[in-house]
Amino acid sequence: MSAAEPVLADVPERGPGGRVPPSRWLSARLLRSELRLIAGRRRNQMGLLVLAAVPVLIAVAVRLSSPREGRGPDFLSSITSNGLFVPLAALGVELGLFLPLAIAMLAGDAVAGEANLGTLRYLLTVPVGRTRLLVTKYASLMIGALWGVAVVVLAGAIAGIALFGTGPMLTLSGTEISFGSAVWRVVLVSLYIAAGLAALGAVGLFISTLTEQPLAATVALMIFTILSWIADSVPQISWLHPWLLVDQWMAFGDLLRDPPFWDNIARGLWVDVAYAVVFGLLAWARFAGKDITS
């Protein structure tokens, strides 16, 4: 038996021994593929439609019920003089269930979904290093979180501006700010909420490494979210509240004060980071040495 000649002579771009050229170490091809996979899935497209429908519904409902210009109470008419209240209200409504559900679905697909299809074993034998796969999956979850929030905000902003115009915005402190600075406030709120959802994504990623059933991972993350909300509303366990991921989520309203009130926002962000780090590490510890038998 003669030893085989390597059949790689015609591939000059690859170093000897199939080594990867350093220029490709930070290649974003896998992440792009991941995002295409998420964006191309019909179920996710439907989910985005649902996310976008809520602000439109709010805008139309408020428009239909709000009294005519000049005759209504001062407060309502001054809120509704600026369409940007619509995306903010929509975010407040969807943060309870719809946005976490969107993350839960993506997280379920991330590892458990690939394991369930069997595609996980083919990714790992490509090879994709397990750490690289997890990092890519988490990056796509973070982008997914931002994506979901952006869809709510954009749909809300378009519907709101179309129906209520671009007047000055009334802050929660009672002052008025220009439309331009209102836009910035909305961007800040979006980023803050996306950060919270991204932290939730880390929890979801960990759960996703525990099972081969994507639906089980999705349901488990929803249970985690809802239990967090419930625990956060029980005053008898107030000592626990600062440790709950969702505790400061609704604090995004502080960004709508004049000037913005940063304390709770900072606390919320710290909790987000802590959850992302702890559950990211748990997911890695679980996944790095796991036997892939699916």
């Binding site: 792009r32 593929s33 191309g40 074993r121």
Partner: peptide, 29 residues
């Protein structure tokens, strides 16, 4: 390798599935 039967994303085309695997391979140009 081919391990325990084929496994691909059902709603992607055959070519898109291969594109995904190729994108995952850092050694692939």
């Amino acid at each position: 390798s081919l391990v325990e039967g084929p496994a691909f994303h059902p709603y992607l085309s055959g070519r898109a599935n291969l594109r995904r695997l190729d994108a995952a391979d850092l050694a692939a140009d």
